[in-house]
C-alpha cells in the first residue's frame, strides 16, 4: 500500500476543513495509506512571497523537518506545492528540504500523474462548473496549458480528472487563465486592484451561467468568494477534491 503524508495548508485548516476532509477521504478511497503529521503548520509562502526571507526561515525549516522523510507529500494547493517545489530556499539547505521539494505534489498532480486515476465512480455531479485554475498551478506547475503559449497543445489536469465524474458539465468563459487577483499578500497590499480583478473574473464567469465555481486552489476561491458575497452572489464555491470525493450541491 502506498503511503503519503497529507499536508493541509493553514488557510484550509482554519477556513475550509471540509476540503481537507475531502482530500483525506478521496486518497483513502483510492487505497493510499494517508499519514497526517500533527506537527504541521504552514509552508512559509506568505512570508517569502512578501520578500521576508528571514521571517520565512524558521517556518520553512519546520515544514522540512515535519515532512522531509516521506516519499510522497500531497496537498490540495497548487500554490503551496509551487512554493515548496520551486521557491523553498529561505531555510537552511538539508536533505529533508531537498526531499520535500522533490516529493511534494499538488493533489491534482498526484491523482493525475502518480496514481493515474481517471474515474471516480462513487461521485456524480449533475451541474455546470466554471473551473478556475490558479496561476501557480498553470504557470508554476504546468497543470494546464497557458493561453500565451499559442502553439502548445491545450490540456488541463483538473479538468481531465473532473471529466471522470458522471454528469459534470463545464462552461466556457472569457479570459479563462487571467489571474483572479488573489496573489497572496497582494490581496491586501493592493486590495483595490485585487478586488477589481476578482469582480471582473466573477463577471466573466457569471455570463456563462455556471451552477458553481470550482478550483483546485482554495486561496483563489477565498478571494473570489469574498468578492461574490460582497456582491450578494450566492453561487457555491467548491474545491476539485470535494467533487471528486462525491459532494452534492
Amino acid at each position: 500500500m502506498m503511503e503519503a503524508a497529507l499536508m493541509i495548508p493553514c488557510y484550509i485548516d482554519v477556513f475550509y476543513p471540509q476540503v481537507g476532509i475531502a482530500t483525506l477521504e478521496l486518497l483513502e478511497r483510492l487505497g493510499v495509506d494517508v499519514v497526517y503529521p500533527k506537527e504541521q503548520t504552514c509552508c512559509g509562502q506568505p512570508m517569502a512571497n512578501s520578500g521576508c526571507y528571514q521571517e520565512a526561515k524558521a517556518t520553512e525549516e519546520h515544514c522540512a523537518n515535519v515532512f522531509g522523510s516521506f516519499e510522497y507529500v500531497v496537498t490540495p494547493s497548487g500554490s503551496c506545492t509551487h512554493h515548496i517545489r520551486n521557491k523553498f530556499t529561505a531555510g537552511a539547505d538539508s536533505p529533508e528540504r531537498q526531499r520535500l521539494s522533490k516529493n511534494t505534489y499538488d493533489l491534482i498532480e498526484f491523482l493525475h500523474d502518480v496514481l493515474k486515476v481517471r474515474e471516480f465512480p462513487w461521485a456524480t455531479f449533475e451541474h455546470k462548473v466554471a473551473l478556475h485554475t490558479s496561476c501557480s498551478a498553470i504557470r508554476g506547475l504546468n497543470m494546464a496549458s497557458m493561453s500565451e503559449r499559442v502553439h502548445d497543445a491545450v490540456f488541463s489536469k483538473p479538468k481531465a480528472l473532473l471529466s471522470g465524474v458522471p454528469g459534470i458539465q463545464f462552461v466556457d468563459f472569457d479570459r479563462v487563465d487571467e489571474c483572479c487577483g488573489f496573489g497572496g499578500t497582494f490581496s491586501v497590499t493592493e486590495e483595490a486592484v485585487a478586488a477589481k480583478m476578482g469582480y471582473d473574473k466573477l463577471a466573466f464567469m457569471h455570463k456563462a451561467s455556471p451552477d458553481c465555481i470550482v478550483s483546485s486552489d482554495m486561496s483563489c476561491l477565498m478571494h473570489l468568494q469574498g468578492c461574490a458575497r460582497r456582491q450578494k452572489q450566492e453561487i457555491p464555491f467548491l474545491h476539485v477534491a470535494e467533487i471528486l470525493n462525491g459532494v452534492s450541491l
Binding site: D13, F15, Y16, K38, A195, K196, Q225, G226, C227
Partner: peptide, 16 residues
C-alpha cells in the same frame, strides 16, 4: 471590497 471568510467551527486539525 470583499467579505471576510468565516472560520469553520472546527479546524481540520481538530476534526482529525
Amino acid at each position: 471590497h470583499r467579505d471576510v471568510p468565516e472560520a469553520a467551527l472546527e479546524t481540520f486539525h481538530q476534526w482529525y
